[in-house]
Nucleic acid binder design. Structure first.
Lengths: 192, 192
DNA sequence: AAATTAATTTTATAAAAATAGAATTAAATA
DNA sequence: TATTTAATTCTATTTTTATAAAATTAATTT
């Protein structure tokens, strides 16, 4: 079970009113299934089901005693997760599996025609940024391109090459030198 | 929203894989609904629904920006709950509504003076019931008590022995026989 | 003003989870 | 050994929740 799954299991285990009550009761003392069922006014099989979920999350442990099963709260587990939530690296890690480029792909699919040309220049910033990020990959890092060459590259995608040149610089994907000078690609500064 | 309900809302808000991912993403930077939908590969209306749940739990906040809604993570809320989980009084409190005797104990603590006598007879039924339940334990089950003996017992606690006798019968803790006859304790019919 | 866009709300459906009765298992005692 | 008891597992049902399409709202741009 990976980290995220573990947290999800933990939250799911506690995301039920009766299970929260069970945790509350077990925080005071151990109880048998039968006792819990009487206290919560639900069936024993239902309590058993809840205890299974809590158990899978590591929140309770059963201790057999003749044919009773006394359940104990695993307080350490709760504290462990609470401390994890206070750790600033935990939450950002939850997004690790998310495909960071999904948004860009969607924008690109929307703005490029099947023949590979640009339908239009996006008016919205975050979409323009996605398009520029895509186009700028045609330029090698660390090489200078004369304006003429830049124009020829952009002309393959859209007639308004002047705007593309300007936006590339404006959004911080490229830099330019001098008046009619040359352009070069630079590292994108985080922002998205 | 009481304490328990608040915790339940919190756990329910985080008990979903996509919502955990949203929290993870927002822990890095704010995102619009549209961006989150693209990143998670689900519909915008679905994301909106998730954000409503997170919002109700106080975990995110929207910041309108033209017609975009940028959602921000409310990290303080998460930390606040995490700290609450580390507090040893939080979990036992979750069972407050359940513990059938907690109410009785509180009433008894309120109505009995340190010397063991009754401050007054409660006017509210459920408080009276708790007091009577406590007092009736002085009588053995299955034994008959003449009225004189009953009075002497009650007089230790309160001068109004007549009311106590009457209520014991009225609430179904005891039964009486004949005119000036005798009393005996009976099983309390579940009600609490 | 008309058209576009993002977000939400509404509505409907599909999926997941809670519940309890019945059947089963395991342990205790008569 | 047979019976009782507590717990679990199985099965069926109800309730809750996630999902998205369609309709609506609100703000922007043309």
């Amino acid at each position: 079970m990976d980290e995220n799954e573990e947290l999800l299991t933990f939250f799911k285990a506690l995301a039920d009113a009766n299970r929260l009550k069970i945790v509350g009761l077990l925080a005071r003392q151990p109880y048998s299934v039968e006792q819990l069922a009487a206290l919560l006014q639900v069936g024993a099989s239902t309590v058993s089901h809840h205890l299974t979920k809590l158990s899978e999350a590591g929140l309770v442990m059963a201790q057999a005693h003749s044919y009773y099963n006394y359940y104990h709260l695993q307080n350490e587990k709760i504290q462990q997760v609470a401390r994890k939530l206070l750790d600033s690296t935990t939450l950002p890690a939850l997004s690790a599996e998310v495909d960071a480029n999904a948004f860009d792909r969607k924008v690109i699919a929307n703005y490029f025609l099947p023949d590979g040309t640009l339908k239009a220049l996006p008016s919205q910033q975050k979409k323009m940024r996605a398009v520029l990020r895509h186009l700028v990959q045609r330029f090698e890092m660390g090489r200078k391109y004369p304006e003429k060459e830049v124009n020829e590259m952009f002309a393959q995608f859209h007639e308004d090459t002047a705007s593309l040149r300007r936006e590339m610089v404006g959004y911080g994907f490229m830099q330019r030198e001098g008046g009619g000078g040359c352009y070069w690609r630079i590292e994108e500064k985080e922002e998205r």
